[in-house]
């Protein structure tokens, strides 16, 4: 009968705090527990570090010690499903929202959503920006803009963009806005991944463009949520970032 599947299952259960598998030996029998603890510690610490790499602002906000303890719990309930650890943590924002010790800090989930989106943008596929002459030649009433795959729009309940920005190393001290914000996350040509808080009209325009609507239709959608909305600043921001990659008529 194959013994290895059973061995692996027992070892894994022991890593999670269950009893040690049979047959472990060490130079002194009484040191088996201590030596097994090296593996328990390696798993917990390496996963905690991987999570901290993805969510540095959350770590800064709750503190390293609290983060490490919380990461152990998160790693138990939402283990990575693949060895590609930069894809891990999609459920972390939801976990934070339901973590009782953090109930007084409801904005943390939104900050984690920003950090997760930044990670995805950092690793998104490479697509070169559109030649500005091509964009200039396009007819606004017919053109559909294609945005870079890193471009992500997040509707946030809290003013998490402001919180995120305040907690950057050397970041600007912004006055904390209150209430909902919409975050625009994208990767610039030089690989920086800034986070912008965008106005309701900008958000409506971007959503419409991402849905494949013509630019004129998207501009009208922006007007409906924000009368007098001028898309100029947003389009300049997107062009400077290299976030418009194609224009199709």
């Amino acid at each position: 009968m194959p013994a290895h599947p059973e061995f692996v299952a027992q070892f894994d259960a022991a890593l999670r705090g269950g009893g040690l598998p049979l047959g472990l030996t060490a130079r002194r029998a009484e040191e088996v527990e201590r030596r097994f603890a090296v593996y328990r510690n390696n798993v917990a610490v390496s996963l905690s570090q991987a999570l901290a790499t993805r969510f540095p602002v959350i770590q800064r906000l709750v503190g390293e010690t609290f983060f490490a303890a919380m990461a152990r719990i998160y790693a138990e309930v939402d283990r990575p499903k693949t060895p590609v650890l930069h894809e891990w943590g999609e459920g972390f924002a939801g976990f934070l929202g339901g973590f009782p010790p953090l109930a007084a800090y409801p904005y943390l989930g939104d900050v984690a959503r920003i950090e997760y989106a930044r990670g995805r943008a950092f690793h998104a596929a490479d697509v070169p920006p559109i030649d500005p002459a091509r964009l200039a030649a396009a007819a606004p009433d017919r053109v559909r803009l294609i945005l870079h795959p890193s471009v992500t729009l997040l509707a946030l309940v809290h003013s998490a963009v402001s919180i995120w920005a305040r907690n950057q190393p050397g970041g600007e001290v912004l006055s904390l806005a209150t209430g909902p914000e919409t975050a625009l996350v994208l990767r610039e040509v030089g690989f920086a991944v800034p986070v912008h808080a965008v106005r309701p009209g900008d958000a409506a325009l971007l959503r419409s463009v991402q849905a494949g609507e013509r630019l004129a239709t998207a501009a009208a959608a922006a007007q409906r949520v924000e009368a007098g909305h001028d898309p100029q600043d947003l389009l300049v921001l997107l062009m400077r970032a290299g976030a418009i990659v194609d224009a199709r008529e």
């Binding site: 290895h4 798993v43 996963l47 990575p80 499903k81």
Partner: peptide
């Protein structure tokens, strides 16, 4: 070493460490 543990019906979970195995004819 091993680093993933497949749970039947639940897919694999990755432990991010290089874990040891007994050396037998089976392994």
């Amino acid at each position: 070493a091993w680093s993933s543990h497949g749970v039947e019906g639940l897919g694999a979970e990755y432990l991010n460490d290089l874990l040891p195995l007994p050396y037998t004819e089976e392994t």
